[in-house]
Amino acid sequence: MLGGVSMIAACGSSDPRFLTYRGPDVTSVLVYKGQRKMQLMHNNTMLKSYRFELGFAPTGHKRIEGDGRTPEGQYWIDRRNPNSRFHLSLGISYPNANDRAVAQSMGMPPGGDIFIHGTPDRYRGQDDWTWGCIAVSNREIEEIYSMVRDGTPIYIWA
């Protein structure tokens, strides 16, 4: 069950994108690409579950820049962008050393800038429109942004 998520003023402003979360720590993020289900976990307890959209090539592991795929495997939430053009965003640590080696063996760059983010108006209602990111509604990314800390492991499965 979700602890309290409430609005607060961020840096003295009344920016509604910033919520505060007063519940159990999110200890991992589980992403099931085929089911389009993302779960925020506290140990073995699911705190919240979300539906999402993926890249324009939703199956398979991301190999190279521009392939439209979302990576699979264990990564980390490694940064946050409060000024994202996709409302808010949480960075995923793709590419790792193995991802870079695979892309290099193909003579291609691995790509990067994979995020969990919101959905601009022009993409609402479209299926699998990102370039490999995980897109939720703007309201949902506000909640996720407040709950998930940098350094949280994210597991992405097919």
Results as ranks from 00 to 15, higher is better:
Arg149Phe: 02
Asn43Thr: 11
Asp150Tyr: 02
Trp131Lys: 13
Tyr50Arg: 06
Arg139Ile: 09
Gly112Leu: 02
Arg51Phe: 11
Thr59Cys: 00
Arg63Trp: 05
Arg22His: 14
Tyr75Pro: 02
Phe115Ser: 01
Val26Ala: 07
Ser137Val: 08
Asp15Glu: 12
Thr59Lys: 13
Ala9Leu: 13
Arg124Ile: 15
Gly111Thr: 07
Glu65Val: 02
Pro58Leu: 05
Arg80Lys: 15
Ala97Leu: 12
Asn81Lys: 03
Met147Phe: 06
Gly60Ala: 09
Ser89Trp: 03
Ile144Gly: 04
Gly66Lys: 08
Ala101Tyr: 06
Pro24Thr: 07
Val148Asn: 06
Asn83Val: 08
Met106Ile: 02
Gly111Val: 04
Ala135Arg: 01
Gly132Tyr: 04
Ser49His: 00
His61Val: 07
Asn96Val: 05
Arg85Glu: 12
Ser14Cys: 12
Gly73Thr: 08
Gly55Gln: 03
Gly132Asp: 06
Met38Val: 04
Glu140Pro: 00
Asn83Tyr: 15
Ser146Gly: 15
Ala103Leu: 08
Ile114Thr: 08
Ser6Ala: 13
Ser105Ile: 03
Gln126Asn: 09
Glu65His: 10
Ile8Gly: 01
Leu19Arg: 15
Ser105Leu: 07
Val136Asp: 06
Gly125Cys: 09
Leu30Trp: 10
Gly12Trp: 08
Asp25Ile: 00
Phe86Met: 11
Tyr123Lys: 10
Thr119Glu: 11
Val148Asp: 01
Gln74His: 10
Gly34Lys: 14
Gly34Arg: 15
Pro110Glu: 09
Ile64Ala: 10
Met38Gln: 04
Ala158Pro: 15
Met7Cys: 00
Lys62Asn: 05
Met108Arg: 15
Leu88Arg: 05
Ser49Pro: 01
Met38Tyr: 04
His117Tyr: 09
Asp113Tyr: 10
Leu90Asp: 03
His42Val: 00
Ile114Phe: 04
Asp15Trp: 10
Arg85Trp: 00
Ile92Tyr: 02
Trp76Ile: 14
Gly125Trp: 12
Arg122Tyr: 13
Ile8Phe: 11
